[in-house]
Computed example of a mutant assay.
Amino acid sequence: MRRRRFLAGSVGVAGLSGCAGSPPDGFDGGPTETYRNPVFERVFPDPSVVRAADGTFYAYGTEEDGERFRRVPIVESEDLVNWTRAGEAFESKPDWRDGAYLWAPDVVRMNGTYYLYYSYADWGDENPGIGVATGDDPAGPFTDRGKLFRGDEIGVENSIDPMVFLRDGAPYLFWGSRRGIYAIALRSDGLDTRGEKTRIAGDHYEGAYVVERGGRYYFFGSVGTCCEGMSSTYHVRAGRSDSLLGPYEGADGNDLREAKGPVVVEGGNGFVGPGHNAVVTDDAGDDWLLYHAYEEGEGYVEETPRRILMVDCIDWSDGWPTVEGKTPSRAARVPRID
């Protein structure tokens, strides 16, 4: 297992994967170091990320971790490339259902509080649901606030993979897997829905993530099989819209409710099945894709899929998000953290 994440100082960044361009005016220098993927080698699928007021980054993953079950494992980092364990989100399982796992969390800070939205589901679950918890400390523990909804209550099969987008402080929930991606407004306290749902993307997608850039909204969604070790076909595709609630289109103008958008990252360079991403911005304004992948030859820890944490810079040079070469990097320059 590799412990050292930075390459020797004599290694330059030329020829390595990373964002092009210079730091913005006023930024105090830039990094000369480089890092290697994966940035956290323990099992850490379906990552989300939030940055705390003190600048620390916290990432959250699905309950399974290959060593023991942690109730939403949490890792922290000051630079996005060196991650250490910070704890777990829950001291005990939420009690609004039994016999399920805590999958694919998303954390957002609003109303001066950290909100953790989570899937509560099992393999082959006919009626999974989404819950919400709150906490003052991003390192946990979080206090469960109960069920947001189950699939039969909202009219969406396979209601998992929540992601919350704040538009001018107002929260919107995106969710769904293989039965369409949907969005709905949340109440200002984040604890219930309001209004009607809108279909955003088709049955190809899961793991939705949305960002705003240059007055447009960009949708990221994972396509393919996530959890089959070296046979996994997971990869990330994108769409964009002038409106948060769509319609989202690919580069060819086709609606994501019927079509697949352009590839952001797919398997290659020694990694398989990259997907279920989050996006975070460094202090120079560069966007970074956090996602999981398999490393070739290391598909499982016992019976648990060994999906590891990866970080790559997003290149927006053609108006669409991609990582360099559309494959995970082995080595790249580190993010710029002031």
Rank of each mutant, 00 (worst) to 15 (best):
R5P: 00
F6W: 14
G9E: 14
G12P: 10
S22N: 12
P24L: 14
D28Y: 13
G29T: 14
P31I: 10
E33F: 09
P38N: 04
R42A: 15
V43A: 11
V49S: 06
G55S: 12
Y58G: 02
G61N: 10
E63T: 01
E63W: 04
R68D: 10
F69N: 08
R71I: 01
I74G: 00
V75N: 05
D79S: 05
W83S: 04
T84P: 09
A86P: 06
A89D: 03
E91D: 11
D95V: 04
D98M: 04
A100P: 03
Y101A: 09
V107D: 06
V108W: 03
V108T: 13
T113M: 13
Y115P: 02
L116G: 02
Y120G: 08
E126M: 14
E126Y: 12
N127M: 12
P128Y: 07
G129A: 10
G129Q: 03
I130Y: 05
T134L: 07
D136F: 08
D144L: 01
G146T: 01
L148V: 15
L148A: 08
D152S: 15
G155D: 15
E157V: 14
D161F: 09
P162K: 07
M163A: 14
F165T: 14
F165R: 08
A170T: 15
A170Y: 01
Y172F: 15
W175G: 00
R178D: 11
R178H: 14
Y182A: 10
Y182W: 15
G190D: 06
D192V: 09
D192T: 13
T198I: 14
I200P: 04
I200N: 12
G202W: 04
A208I: 13
A208T: 15
V210L: 11
E212D: 11
R213E: 00
R213F: 02
Y218T: 02
G221F: 08
S222C: 10
T225L: 10
T225Y: 07
S232G: 01
T233S: 07
Y234M: 03
G239L: 03
S241C: 12
S243H: 15
G246L: 09
G246A: 12
G246P: 08
P247C: 08
P247M: 08
G250P: 02
G250W: 03
N254D: 15
N254W: 06
R257C: 10
A259C: 03
P262W: 01
G267Y: 04
G268A: 07
F271H: 00
G275R: 00
G275T: 06
H276K: 01
T281G: 04
T281N: 06
D282T: 12
G285N: 08
D286R: 12
A293G: 03
E295Q: 13
E296R: 07
G299T: 00
T304G: 05
P305T: 00
I308L: 15
L309T: 03
D315M: 01
S317M: 00
A332H: 02
V334H: 05
P335G: 02
P335H: 05
